[in-house]
Amino acid sequence: MTLTTENPHINYQRIEQAIRYLEDNVRRQPELEEVAEKVHLSPFHFQRIFTEWAGISPKRFLQYLTVDYLKDKLLQSRNLAEAAELAGLSSQSRVYDLFTTLEAVTPQEYKERGAGIRVEYGFHASPFGLCLIGVTERGICWLSFVASDEDPRHALEEMKAYWHNSVFHESQELTKAFVEQVFPESPLQKKLHLFVKGTNFQIRVWEALLRVPMGEVTTYQDIARSIQNPNALQAVGSAVGSNHIAYLIPCHRVIRKDGVLGQYRWSSARKKSIIGWEMARQETPNKH
């Protein structure tokens, strides 16, 4: 098995280390020189790679991740949803032009755990480190991130366990084209189709997540309300955590109602990275 034909983003690893350090020392607000030293870069080089990655400075980036800022974003998101309802749009309506559509396996396919399905897979660099993508003729069926200290084979085994009876074939060239669509160089992108395996309840939650726009955040409570099941908070949390297509089904946009970001299947630091990166791209689109 060839793990990757590309170098994973070493820069992202340093950015993630920096975000962890800034978060751990948020009360002290360390200067750029101190953070750069912690990630073994000169202040100039660190500022440059961070700004190239995020489009904004590290200091500005961290402001997106404060509890007060995220509380305000939650309020804005809720107001948008309420405005849509007042306009006569149901919560199931396409308030936003979705770039991602979703198809679920049939009940028989669910029972057979992927039998007869061929999955092409590959490891690729992404803005958030090394990722593993799986693709079928019916759409993207897997996307996960690999931790810098993790053996990529572990991610592959996790995908194979999920699509248990499928046939797997490594195809770097084919999957590279999909990754380039998932993380496009410019904001213009083709619509992406996802092929998911889950219970009816999980699929309803994942469909609700698709309606949370980039740069916005929501809560478990709001997701539960949006699927007309306001008391199912624990089940919603479980469905969010069971998402097997990272980033595209944006479970990272679900945070606690008190503005705390909370946990993430692919590490809390990566969740911070993605949320801040998305907010920066939405608020400074001319830089991307």
Rank of each mutant, 00 (worst) to 15 (best):
3 L>Q: 03
5 T>P: 00
5 T>G: 05
7 N>I: 04
8 P>D: 04
12 Y>E: 12
14 R>P: 00
16 E>A: 14
18 A>H: 06
23 E>S: 11
24 D>N: 09
27 R>H: 12
29 Q>H: 10
30 P>E: 02
31 E>N: 14
34 E>H: 07
35 V>H: 02
36 A>C: 12
48 R>I: 01
48 R>D: 13
49 I>T: 07
53 W>Y: 03
54 A>S: 07
56 I>A: 02
57 S>W: 11
57 S>L: 13
63 Q>T: 15
63 Q>A: 15
65 L>R: 00
71 K>S: 12
75 L>A: 12
75 L>S: 13
76 Q>T: 09
78 R>A: 14
79 N>M: 10
82 E>A: 11
83 A>R: 00
89 L>G: 01
97 D>H: 11
99 F>T: 14
103 E>F: 14
103 E>K: 14
105 V>K: 04
108 Q>F: 11
110 Y>E: 15
115 A>G: 07
115 A>Q: 13
116 G>H: 06
116 G>C: 04
118 R>K: 14
120 E>I: 01
120 E>C: 06
121 Y>F: 12
125 A>Q: 06
127 P>T: 05
127 P>V: 02
127 P>S: 07
131 C>P: 02
132 L>W: 08
134 G>Q: 05
134 G>D: 02
138 R>L: 14
138 R>C: 05
140 I>E: 04
143 L>Q: 09
148 S>F: 13
150 E>M: 13
152 P>M: 07
156 L>P: 03
156 L>T: 10
159 M>F: 03
161 A>I: 03
162 Y>V: 05
167 V>E: 09
170 E>T: 05
172 Q>E: 14
173 E>D: 14
182 V>K: 00
182 V>C: 01
183 F>D: 13
183 F>P: 03
186 S>L: 10
187 P>G: 03
188 L>I: 09
189 Q>P: 01
189 Q>K: 13
192 L>I: 11
192 L>W: 08
195 F>G: 03
196 V>F: 08
197 K>E: 15
198 G>F: 14
198 G>M: 05
201 F>S: 08
202 Q>S: 07
202 Q>E: 14
204 R>T: 10
205 V>S: 01
215 G>L: 08
217 V>Q: 00
218 T>W: 06
219 T>S: 13
220 Y>H: 07
221 Q>T: 08
227 I>S: 04
228 Q>E: 15
232 A>V: 06
232 A>E: 11
239 A>T: 06
241 G>A: 11
243 N>L: 09
246 A>Y: 01
246 A>W: 06
251 C>Q: 06
251 C>A: 14
256 R>H: 13
263 Q>Y: 09
264 Y>M: 00
266 W>L: 06
268 S>L: 02
269 A>S: 10
281 R>K: 09
285 P>H: 01
287 K>I: 12
